[in-house]
Write a protein that binds this DNA or RNA. Structure first.
Lengths: 334, 334
DNA sequence: GTACTTCTTGTTAACGTTAACGTAATGGAC
DNA sequence: GTCCATTACGTTAACGTTAACAAGAAGTAC
């Protein structure tokens, strides 16, 4: 049989103090004599005492855990975001409980949020890049700190977002500046805000420049769908510049152009989005737009902590601008 | 001011039963009259009652949370594993608390494990692909269900692992079978078990075939380091077949070969490892070895649940074999 | 009818922590 | 000396749940 794990009262007995004093030492309260504190700490290490967070959560009504609702995906963007957020949270002394969902529909999101609430998490981050997620957020309790990442800019919810429109502008302007008459666009899934924003930035820039706006090629995020769009583009002689909604799509497009013998960047220029680690080693190295996921993670943690300290606030909002990374996949048209 | 969240006793009062009966309904105990159960459930929904997991954890001494210790990385392998594990755990009714660490050294791992233990997690998964992680596991408490993924095969710890050696064999044999005299290898970081296993499988297969064993090119996991190794390989005329420890390295190698005008697969054949989603759209599409991360995740969850139910067992062990995915980057030498 | 089981419910006591309050002891200011 | 603030503790009562035990009702075997 295993013995009971030591509790506060065991530490207290060994140190010859009350359990409340142990609690004070653990929580760094003032008004504890140095000598007493050392005795308590010695007792803690001697017994191998580990505080029971569940008891603490029960009595305070709030845990030191942050809940995340994330799409179950290995897409570079969401994965990077999650990873960065975990690290930031850990540094702020919070554990992170991840609730993956297969789809960001209302039922799935609500279920995960319920689970988080049952655990009395201190706050919730919803990585909500699609339309349906926004709807789900409508019917959530409003009295808990919550931050949306990559969510619907029109909803009255605390929001941290990458400026997708600006990203679309950067890419498109870069191609126009290189001398192209117009820019074709391979878009991500229609229900993603990322797609919508990048597409809006692209269209807006073309219109502002008086350039013709070619039809949009609708894809998902995969290289496979990029390849299919790329085959159509490769067969269309007037195409000289392409902006794809992410780097995977760009890879598929590059592949198709290569198969059709259309050289990049000599005949066709391509710009991607995300700056995945491999982008610099595509053939040719890909010019792309880099969102700063670390900053997004820190910002969302910041908004969460603000609300935890100072109360829920639905007006908080932060936008992070992406930057253009120029490599070899763009050149002037011939 | 906000009202207190409803507790079990509020539900009990509304339903006209004792709180213990509510508990029985919630936990699906038998010996509750159908009519009573319906009354209780009606009260639950009417009040919007949510059980307090912290209280449950406190009294049972164990939470419905699984702790993960993972390297903070966006590498495809670890990220996929984590993602798959979260989903599997959620389906088994467990929440997942992720503890990211920058390095898998002893201090970092111990700190994260301590945090998990303080939360009284039901079990811990350590994704421990490097040597130093194995050492850290030595000095962990032995009375909690724990599973190592991708860890040191020589340690007496429950372990789920991809058969890296077999993967190395598959890749190498495939290249030898295509008619190549020998196969060069670009290896991952020396302290990763993944690297060591793949390298061992490669070396073993060459020796068994009586082929010459060329010097190993040591890289990290990045396309950048693959590119650097690729430049050396491209300048070495006798190189006709290359096996890289992952797909990113392969991309870097492909890039270097392309720059030096050495055609793949006509002059040089390349095989990668991981089957990242983009691999099919590299130029040329990459032949690679695919580890089944979903199966690994399910297996590790299984070993964890077994131990949670039936007690800690250090002899549990499971190995998942990878499969070869053939595409266009391999051909017979001229 | 008695004795024994099974079903259904209630009562009480934990679990380990923090909050609120109480109470000496100490140290100035006057 | 008194008065009061500050320091350094201890005592008691929660928090919301489950486990253990109790106990009445109902059914069954004889």
């Amino acid at each position: 049989m295993t013995v009971r794990a030591p509790a506060m009262r065991d530490v207290a007995r060994l140190a010859g103090v009350s359990h409340q004093t142990v609690s004070r030492v653990l929580n760094g309260h003032p008004h504890v004599r140095e000598q007493t504190r050392l005795r308590v700490q010695a007792a803690i290490t001697e017994l191998g005492y580990r505080p029971n967070r569940a008891a603490r959560t029960l009595v305070t009504g709030r845990s030191q855990v942050l809940g995340v609702v994330a799409l179950n995906t290995t897409l570079y963007g969401p994965a990077s975001l999650l990873s960065a957020f975990e690290l930031a949270a850990a540094e702020a002394g919070f554990a992170v409980s991840v609730g993956s969902v297969r789809n960001l529909d209302r039922t799935s999101i609500t279920a995960v949020v319920e689970r988080h609430l049952a655990h009395r998490v201190a706050g919730i981050v919803v990585i909500a890049p699609v339309e349906s997620a926004g709807e789900a957020l409508e019917c959530l309790p409003t009295d808990i700190p919550l931050v949306t990442v990559d969510g619907d800019p029109r909803r009255p919810v605390p929001l941290v977002t990458i400026d997708q429109v600006e990203g679309g502008r950067l890419a498109t302007r870069h191609l126009l500046d290189a001398g192209h008459q117009t820019v074709w666009h391979v878009s991500g899934p229609a229900d993603w805000f990322d797609s919508a924003g990048r597409l809006a930035g692209w269209r807006e820039t073309l219109q502002a420049a008086g350039a013709e706006v070619p039809p949009v090629l609708q894809a998902d995020w995969s290289a496979a769908s990029g390849y299919r769009c790329g085959q159509m583009l490769a067969r269309t002689p007037e195409v000289t510049a392409i902006f794809t909604a992410n780097d995977d799509l760009a890879l598929g497009v590059l592949h198709a152009l290569h198969e059709h013998g259309r050289r990049v960047p000599e005949e066709v220029s391509v710009v991607g989005f995300d700056d995945v680690p491999d982008a610099a080693y595509f053939i040719p190295p890909l010019t792309t737009v880099r969102p700063d996921f670390d900053t997004v993670a820190e910002a969302s943690l910041g908004l969460l902590l603000t609300q935890i300290d100072a109360g829920v606030d639905h007006t908080l909002r932060q936008t992070i601008s992406p930057t253009l990374i120029t490599r070899d996949s763009v050149a002037a048209p011939r």
